[in-house]
Nucleic acid binder design. Structure first.
Length: 889
DNA sequence: GCGATCAGCGCG
DNA sequence: GTGCGTGCTGATCGC
């Protein structure tokens, strides 16, 4: 043995936690709500440290028990803020990780991690063994010697500072022996070590350079003049006590020696299983890859990877497929595996089929040309179960094939049970509802540019087949849960039928006017070029205007404009900051215009061009199982954020047009969220206003400001409050929004809640419900879990409250329009109408309508939307038609 | 050359 | 510390 690594476990864990728990951060959690951010960062840190070791390593921890230091000084570490609950929960997990990784760990009652590390380090050093210590606690610098290097983690954990006797002297001009005295003189507020009052780092270093040690300082105490001298003489006791407290005990009675620190050989699969449990996908994949490399030597072990308890049959030809389908004219689960998430253009990699007892992998090129199989898919009498039905449906539509009668979709069911699964994959969702072990996609197919079918075909045959079997196996459990939670109707009457609607919308697509697109592209290019020139001229040099960093340098260093707030990485240059600088320099208006046009150009003109298919249409994908509130989202391209608020941006809408002899028809709910609020909170005055068809912001302003004639400014402010209320408002941010002082903003809110007292009551009740049950629900029993609401971290808890207040409102509005879509689609289908729903933008629907159906649809669409759900307030809708999207005002 | 992250900004 | 839910872009940085 020639090298030893010692890690201050508590200190590294703290850093690991706070590196990922900066204010406003959403902490990493498993789908069950177990916090894992600190474990993840800790493991990453340990991986880096392990690369530097050759086998001997120990991680030391503090215990909760008092130490010798507490006996000597009751106030030791007093006043230290309690460890956040989110971190405390992860300590046992980190310890478990160390066990699984074969890394020795130690904690000892009466001693701190420092003492354990100090004792082992000195012991090893005396035997001429090189020691590396890792911590973020500067106290450990006193251990530095010829053999011991101390590595201090800096903020964010990306960098380490290394301290040897030489570098220590360079930085402090003190020897490592003097580090104890330095700390003793300065004190340390975080450990509540007093030090000498009035002595900080500067003075302490000066004193130690002159007198070397505290002991010698007091031999010469009378030589020191002035106030400083007095203080030093007065606080002799404190200085010695402090020195005693900060001195690491390098002779702690440990039950083992530095020699017994060898890393134990481990079963990698155990560690992988542990990471899987915690859903730390990155770590699972990393370990699996490392493992693969070592497995080449060991063939036996690689057999262990294939699951013995799972078996499936391969179907690679028509005869066998005919046979199988003939024998299984019964409900089965079907899984289509695609080469990429965009199923409009994806290849089909394989099909899984299962009836619970038998599971099959079907060659995709066989399946799509086999009439028996295709007949099975479109047989309306036989139920099928899927995971992401819409993907299969749309894929088959592109191939002119049909599929019918889906009675269960695992993705939608899981989403209704727990809407936070939105961003998770099949594997994670599976592990949330069962203990079935199934590989991550990345393990099978790789990731990013390297994604593809593995050479070992059985690997993906099994994977795809297994997915089908999982769908079948989990079906009854999930349906049972939905039934218990009163959500069966939401699945069967809303979400699954909605899948059909969305599939049709996506497949229909939205036609693009190429001439208009090109025209706008050229106009924008010219204007952007002119603006660039003006900006360079004003700045006196060329630079990248799109780089906030470079722009910040120009504005705040070169032109010396008054800077507003800062971001994590530098000056903020966002629109709010620019707005304030508008009159300070002529360059600012140019930059603001440049920003606007550059956004339109890159995101909408160029971005959308890239998503146009060969039919000259864009085919978006609506994600039906993503948002935590129940809304849809739209990607590739996102058609839910096409500009409208400025005239400049709104022109983009001209590029989206109706097909020949068709019109676009847009119908939107007016104030749907406020109406939902009025209904579920039973807000008397709000309901009356809606009943009387009043301008809701105006009537709010009349009541808040006690006036009959409302100024436009008053209406604007009332509108901001109305919106704010829906989001779970705070006075501070409302103040920002409507440019008044926080105090005035608070007055507005108070007045508002006096006028609509039921809202206040509703908000209280909702937060209370969420605190007790851990979730909130919508009109149609959609749930959103809000674990943060019971957090001890203030910010997290407040965030939870706002979510609790907002989710039922936003979610109920989402429920309503979903029902309307299903109703409308059904009507169009049953009555053989040619009109098609093509877009949904949260509170509006857009249809493509043939000329001959136009008058009918103008009546019908709003009518169906209005009566989708019966509330105690009416739902009002407006309706417009035009040849392109721009004309729908 | 790729992936992750940040700042910024578009929508309801 | 400070109003909800989204997706996409270009710049930047680390590997």
């Amino acid at each position: 043995m020639e090298h030893l690594t010692l890690v201050d476990g508590n200190s590294v864990m703290f850093r690991a936690y706070y590196a990922t728990a900066y204010p406003g951060a959403v902490l990493m959690q498993t789908s069950q709500g177990v916090y894992t951010n600190a474990v993840f960062a800790f493991v990453n840190m340990m991986d880096k440290i392990l690369e530097q070791t050759n086998g001997h390593i120990l991680v030391a921890f503090d215990t909760a028990h008092p130490t010798k230091r507490h006996e000597k000084y009751q106030e030791y570490k007093a006043g230290r803020a309690a460890m956040p609950e989110e971190l405390a929960q992860q300590i046992p997990l980190v310890k478990k990780y160390l066990d699984k990784a074969g890394i020795k760990q130690h904690e000892q009652i009466g001693y701190e991690a420092d003492d354990i590390i100090g004792t082992l380090a000195k012991e090893a050093s005396q035997n001429n063994i090189k020691v590396d210590v890792y911590s973020s606690d500067r106290d450990l610098l006193q251990l530095v010697d010829q053999n011991i290097t101390v590595h201090l983690l800096k903020k964010g954990m990306k960098e380490l500072d290394h301290y040897t006797p030489e570098s220590l002297y360079e930085k402090y001009e003190l020897t490592h022996h003097q580090m104890i005295d330095l700390k003793a003189l300065m004190g340390d507020p975080s450990d509540n070590i007093p030090g000498i009052p009035g002595v900080g780092e500067k003075t302490a270093i000066k004193l130690l350079k002159e007198y070397e040690t505290i002991e010698n300082l007091y031999v010469h105490q009378d030589e020191i003049k002035g106030k400083m001298g007095e203080k030093i003489r007065e606080n002799k006791e404190l200085a010695y006590l402090s020195k005693d407290l900060v001195t690491i005990n390098v002779e702690s009675p440990l039950p083992f020696s530095y020699l017994e620190t060898e890393k134990i050989k481990i079963e990698t699969s155990d560690l992988i299983d542990f990471f899987k449990e915690l859903e730390l996908k990155q770590l699972v994949v990393r370990m699996a890859n490392q493992n693969q490399n070592t497995l080449f030597k060991d063939e036996e072990k690689s057999d262990k990877k294939t699951d013995k308890s799972f078996s499936y049959d391969l179907i690679l030809n028509d005869e066998k497929l005919n046979d199988i389908i003939f024998n299984h004219q019964e409900p089965m689960s079907i899984h289509f595996e695609f080469s990429e998430p965009n199923y409009h253009k994806a290849e089909l990699w394989g099909i899984g089929l299962s009836n619970g007892e038998n599971t099959y992998f079907i060659d995709p090129s066989i399946a799509l040309n086999n009439q028996t199989f295709l007949n099975y898919l479109k047989n309306k009498e036989i139920e099928k179960y899927t995971f992401d039905y819409k993907a299969i449906k749309v894929f088959l539509m592109w191939h002119k094939k049909a599929i019918h009668t889906i009675s269960f979709d695992m993705l939608l069911a899981a989403y209704l049970i727990k809407s936070s699964i939105g961003k998770e994959d099949f594997t994670t969702i599976t592990s949330l509802f069962s203990s079935i072990d199934i590989s991550y996609e990345e393990q099978i197919y790789g990731k990013g540019a390297k994604k593809g079918l593995p050479e070992n075909k059985e690997l993906y045959y099994e994977h795809i087949a297994k997915k089908a079997s999982v769908i079948y196996k989990l079906k009854d459990d999930l349906l049972e849960t939905l039934k218990d939670q009163n959500q069966l109707e939401l699945l069967q009457k809303v979400e699954i039928p909605l899948s059909e609607v969305l599939a049709s919308m996506e497949f229909s697509g939205l036609l693009v006017d190429n001439k208009e697109l090109l025209n706008q592209k050229e106009v924008l290019e010219k204007r952007i070029n002119v603006l660039e020139e003006s900006i360079y001229k004003e700045a006196g040099e060329t630079f990248n205007i799109s780089s906030p960093k470079q722009l910040g340098d120009i504005l705040f260093e070169k032109l010396n404009l008054s800077q507003g707030k800062k971001t994590k990485t530098g000056y903020s240059t966002n629109v709010e900051v620019l707005e304030k600088l508008k009159d300070e320099h002529p360059i600012i208006p140019y930059i603001m215009e440049y920003r606007q046009l550059a956004k339109l150009y890159s995101t909408y003109i160029i971005g959308i061009s890239q998503s146009i298919f060969s039919d000259n249409k864009v085919h978006t994908i609506f994600n039906q199982a993503l948002t935590t509130t129940g809304r849809l989202s739209s990607i590739e391209p996102n058609l839910q954020n096409i500009p409208i608020r400025t005239e400049e941006g709104r022109k983009i809408r001209k590029i989206f047009v109706a097909e020949k002899n068709h019109y676009l028809l847009g119908a939107d709910y007016s104030q749907i969220e406020l109406r939902v609020l009025a209904d579920i909170a039973n807000v008397k005055h709000l309901k009356e206003s809606f009943l009387n068809n009043e301008d809701i912001h105006k009537s709010t302003a009349q009541k808040v400001f006690h006036v009959t004639d409302v100024t436009s400014e008053q209406r604007r402010q009332a509108k901001a409050v109305n919106f704010g209320i829906i989001y779970g408002i705070g006075a501070w941010s409302l103040a920002e929004d409507i440019h008044v002082s926080p105090k005035e903003a608070q007055m507005f809110i108070d007045r508002y809640l006096e006028i609509y007292p039921e809202i206040k009551q509703y908000m209280q009740d909702t937060v209370e419900f969420a605190t007790e049950n851990g979730y909130v629900k919508t009109l149609m029993n959609r749930r959103r879990y809000i674990p943060e609401i019971n957090s001890k971290v203030f910010m997290q808890k407040e965030f939870g409250k706002r979510n609790a207040m907002n989710a039922p409102i936003q979610g109920s509005a989402a429920d309503i329009i979903k029902v309307a879509m299903v109703d409308l689609f059904k009507y169009l289908e049953e009555n053989d109408k040619k009109s098609k729903i093509i877009l949904q933008v949260h509170d509006e629907l857009i249809l493509e309508v043939p000329e001959e159906e136009l008058e009918e649809m103008k009546e019908l669409v709003p009518a169906i939307m209005k009566k989708a759900v019966k509330l105690t307030v009416s739902l009002e809708t407006s309706c417009d038609v035009g040849k392109n999207w721009y004309e729908l005002k």
